[in-house]
Design a protein around this nucleic acid. Structure first.
Lengths: 229, 229, 229, 229
DNA sequence: GATGAATGAGGCTTCATTCAT
DNA sequence: CATGAATGAAGCCTCATTCAT
């Protein structure tokens, strides 16, 4: 295929479409700003529209109801994060487990850390049954991406990848949430990232070969803590 | 829930009579039930009162406003969890790091697993600025208890206990939240607990002596993910 | 009406559209009607909205809360009265004291008498801390207008205008209130006006030159009534 | 009737009655205190009972509802004032008009000034249809007492006593209300009383013989002032 | 399409009053 | 009789959503 000059790969928008996109973007940005400034409890359609510089009526042209707007925002945000991680996975296929672990941890934490305020705000917005499915789907995508990446490692010897990756990603995403919900200052984030790197690396490396370690029988999960471990 | 300036968060009336206590208990139970059945978004004072079999007026005799009720519930729940863990810490003073790690993990996960539904419901209720301070305080108590416990281990050689414990507890609590918010069936919880045991144990054991491991220079925490790790 | 800290007393939305203005007028009229028909104790936001033929929501678009509505109504009414009196003052600059007195009395009583029902209703609404400042400000404006008018009289020889005018206006406004709160039928109002004219005229005329009349020593104002006068 | 030692003219109360009276007194006092401290808008049955040191239940034993309590308080207060004035009237029968005027003014203003806070509070409580009849009845009693007193004056030559006294008392009571509702400090009350003494005296004295004075046609008050007075 | 005034269901809270203890 | 916990009607206010202009 011979080069034919600077290719324009994105189709030219009609003015109408362009305006629509700009409006939607304005609404999106406004929503995040309101989320950051007022919190989910004070996020009202009027407030968002005001901030976006459009009328409520216009907003309802693009989002049939508030929940749709919220879902769209959360979805967009989660997608950004997942895509960053997926890209990282693609970039690290075939690396050793330890490296892969580091790459994953850094990719995820840094994706979150890109915009601390937005991340905090979105964590708050992500709680609620309305978007639970989005969160789950996102987690599944992360899980799949991480699984494939780890299985691609030349030194991979996992007993049960599913379980390992589940725990890995639950820790990574859950702990990061804890960090962001308390204080995600650089002074906290730095050490946190370092420790998390170690934790995940040790975990994954040690999981090589002795995964279903089935040590002693564990006390039943639902009962009181047995005094004997 | 509109902000209300200086909030009165203590119950108006200290239940010192038998009838009162029964009423308060009914309200507490009803709140959790409504939380489980409808979620925090559909938790209304009317609904709680109805479920508790009392009038709204009665509810307001014990809780000056909805927020106070919510805080009371969350506080009670968090206290239960913390106390379980603190008790576990007391019971394991002087054990080896690996054992202590196991004890902590099991204590925490089992405390949460005692009532799966309530835990799920309360995770949802715990998000929101109204109770953020309670959650933080709880985390701090857990952090302190775990720190003291780990420092008491005869084989403890931590570089920076603070950082290690912070990451440990963030992972433990955060990952457990992820599990409960997706599906906390025994089929999930069992393997999760096993992996978490391994993860934390490996982390803590490996943190002996090489804490501030400062291996290779890490990419800056706040910048974009460097493509090459 | 519970206190609410820093109150927002200006309407949320400045009515700049035709529809808006009509709505605000309807709300104003309805408020006065409800005040007349039910009294301030039975004036509820719902009732006013109903009477105005709008929804509560609409009302709250123009008045941030009930108190703001009440203040707006009272303010509007007091302004009408004050403006009438101020105009009268402007029209009578330079007249003799006796004529000025008559003009003031007639202007005030007739301003109140324009709409007997509204006046009665607004007297009731004007009691309450919410509007006390408006009432005071109005009295001060009346006081100032009357002072300036009286000082402009060619035959003015007051000892202490402040005290004289204060007593004059307190009597005029206070007595008129008493009349309207009992029965402001023409049969009452007519003679009342005539007597008030005489009273104020005699007072002002006699105050010429012998103001600080300090006759006999008066019994202390705050002590028990001396039995011997 | 020979003296028979110290006579006990009030019947001895049974303990029960004594307790009742004490309770009622406590409730009365508490009501006034709450009125002063919180205003009529914050006067709740619970608050009064609390302050009185009795239970709401007990309060309802003595007053069938809140309105009854309020009426009782207002009635008691108005009675005190009226009785003071009536006593003054009895004491001044046969005096000259000027003296009678002074006596009335001082008696009324000082009766109100006895407890400034209570007077203010009671003014606020007296607004509302519930007690309008009490206020009217009180005014009528004052009117009657003053009429009889003035008619008893040896130098009385009133044209229409009714009209004169009505205006006199409306001014006295109305103006005093104005004073108390703005600021009833001694610095205000002193001059006010002095001026009021002059005003009423001049009015009454000048009313001797030229009551229906129908002087010149009065200027229209900017309004539709009835042309014929 | 865009606007923003209007809607009204529904949430939170108060408080006069009742009644079992 | 006294108590005070319980009641629930009723008030205030919000905000997602609609629709005439």
């Amino acid at each position: 295929m011979p080069a034919r000059g600077p290719l324009v790969l994105t189709p030219r928008k009609t003015p109408r479409q362009a305006r629509s996109e700009a409006t939607v973007k304005a609404i999106f940005d406004a929503t995040v700003q309101v989320l950051i400034a007022h919190g989910i409890g004070r996020l009202t359609t009027t407030r968002v529209a005001e901030r976006a510089g459009v009328s409520v009526g216009t907003m309802y042209q693009y989002f049939p109801h508030k929940e749709a707007l919220l879902r769209a925002i959360v979805e967009r945000y989660l997608n950004q994060v997942v895509e960053t991680v997926e890209k990282c996975c693609a970039d690290n296929k075939g690396e050793a487990v330890a490296n892969v672990s580091d790459a994953l941890v850094i990719a995820y934490i840094d994706a979150k850390g890109r915009d601390t305020d937005a991340s905090r705000a979105l964590y708050a917005a992500s709680t609620g049954l309305e978007v639970a499915d989005l969160v789950h789907a996102t987690f599944r995508r992360l899980h799949i991406a991480a699984s494939q990446l780890l299985e691609s490692c030349p030194d991979a010897r996992f007993g049960n990848v599913e379980h390992v990756v589940f725990c890995l990603m639950a820790s990574l995403t859950g702990a990061t949430r804890v960090v962001f919900e308390s204080e995600a200052t650089p002074e906290i984030l730095g050490p946190y990232r370092q420790q998390m790197l170690a934790m995940c690396r040790e975990f994954l490396v040690s999981a090589q070969g002795n995964d279903n370690l089935t040590t002693e029988p564990l006390p039943s999960a639902t009962s009181q803590l047995s005094s004997r471990l």
